[in-house]
Design a binder for these strands. Structure first.
Lengths: 289, 289
DNA sequence: TTCTTATATTGCATTTTATACAATACTTAA
DNA sequence: TTAAGTATTGTATAAAATGCAATATAAGAA
């Protein structure tokens, strides 16, 4: 009983973009293209009007979309019913997290979930942590490990796993390690910052708060890269402490005390609220103490 | 969107016999066995309780059966809706008939259907004509070409294609061709009859009516075989005239006039009444003038 | 216009999955 | 204990799905 094609269809119908729908479905665009072709072929009618530049639903596509949603809901319902009848949770959950998070938190989470529900299978995808929330929101992933954004999107549920302060770091043997930038000003301190994301916006805000301009030496993608550069003495970086704790380079850097402190990272699980109705997803929530 | 597994499941749930369900689904028993295994595996719960001798639905199986029926009905509904939207009938219809019928009637029927609905695909299965009604009744086939039984099973629809008298035949050059068994009695006439089926029961009844016992020389499966034996001079046979008309041996045999005549074969299409709701099946009905 | 970019599709090799035949295992009843 | 019936499994084969790379084409930019 392969509901994948139906899911793919709904995803495409919602995004009207083969590339994005394919990514959300974890298949290649060509696969999605052919899946839809097969479906249309079987139904004997086109579901999408499309050229290389624009995709839209046909009338038939709209009718079928309604069917597809119901059908998927029915499938979920029977699955949940049978799961309840079997007394054991089982099935597949897709999860997204950064490589960093996979080192720091994944093991504990999975160990707990697996201990309680050994037959839940987890499809793990890793990537840029900044994509986590949007992927959950798009339904590309069921669950993500992510830092709680300042404004949590409506319809998203968040469950705290750990709080980790954002810390300023500098090479252990750097000349500035004993200086006090709070007095001398920050303009001499070459900063190594995230290109984007929560850490970056917090740092930017922090500099505005103290009324100074950061002297940005490098903008880097990935906390690990920041630690590397800092440990090599290129300047001052800002990363969540949890990254440091899992870094092989942690003994090469020192943390600086700054005032005021940065708001800490709140790391946790994110999912769509409505997905908590699924016993599988709910199991993750319950597995965390 | 492969509904085959769901259909197979329902068929098995109804017959509780892998062999028969497999035949009804036009797959091998091993395939059916593995299909069900896959399904149970995916659902994570057994749908059938079974050993090598007995098959029964589990509680989960009952729940899933309800789901499966609804799901198949929904699928049919959306297919029909989209078909109506497309303005052209298309899809697959399975049809059963004897080899004889395929020579006599199939061409005309298919020609008509194809002319009106070139995209309807017909999956043709041939076999013993006596199985036709039961296969339709079991849902193994959508439609069959068959002789109308004396008592048409409730829920079956029948549409007449042709009426063909049951005729007594004898070898053209046989010594008895000019005799009159009606006067001399039938005990000297070696009869070559169908093993079973409508023709046989009609002949048996006929002999009872005239108060005589047939002298049965041979019981044969298949009208063609009867014609062959008769043409070789082994005795008197009874076959529908339509068989004679399509037989290469027809000029080797002569028909006898008997009183009273046998009730004629009424050859037509058979399907389940409820299937006439499907536009595809209905198209066959409508295609016949 | 012509060039560029974005993106759906297709050719093709590979991988995955489904299938049937034959052999097997096991249940039931004689 | 034997025999018959029947679901299942080993295994080779066939079919289907998949992704990469190449292609084609539409829309916007120069």
């Amino acid at each position: 009983m392969d509901q994948r094609v139906l899911k793919q269809f709904v995803t495409l119908a919602e995004s009207l973009h083969f590339g994005r729908a394919a990514e959300a479905s974890h298949v290649s665009p060509s696969t999605l293209s052919r899946s839809i072709q097969r479906l249309e072929d079987e139904l004997g009618i086109a579901l999408f009007e499309r050229n290389n530049r624009r995709v839209s639903l046909t009338h038939a596509g709209n009718l079928f979309l309604e069917y597809a949603r119901h059908s998927l809901a029915d499938w979920d319902a029977i699955r949940n019913t049978l799961m309840a009848a079997s007394g054991e949770l089982h099935g597949e959950v897709s999860m997204y997290c950064s490589v960093t998070a996979s080192y720091s938190f994944l093991f504990d989470i999975l160990a707990r979930v697996r201990q309680r529900h050994p037959r839940i299978e987890i499809k793990l995808h890793t990537g840029d942590p900044e994509d986590a929330v949007s992927r959950v929101l798009a339904g590309t992933e069921d669950i993500a490990i992510a830092a709680r954004p300042d404004n949590l999107h409506a319809g998203l549920a968040f469950r705290l796993i750990d709080v980790s302060p954002l810390v300023f770091i500098v090479a252990h043997d750097h000349e500035l390690v004993t200086a006090n930038p709070g007095q001398t000003g920050w303009s001499d301190w070459p900063m190594i910052l995230s290109e984007r994301g929560l850490a970056r916006s917090r740092v930017d805000r922090w500099f505005r708060t103290i009324g100074q301009q950061p002297n940005i030496y490098a903008q880097v993608a990935g906390n690990e890269a920041i630690v590397s550069m800092v440990s090599l003495g290129f300047g001052v970086g800002v990363v969540p402490r949890i990254v440091l704790e899992n870094s092989p380079l942690s003994d090469k850097v020192a943390t600086l005390d700054v005032e005021p402190g940065l708001a800490p990272y709140e790391v946790g699980l994110v999912t769509q609220e409505k997905k908590l109705a699924s016993p599988l997803i709910a199991a993750f929530w319950a597995a965390l103490k």
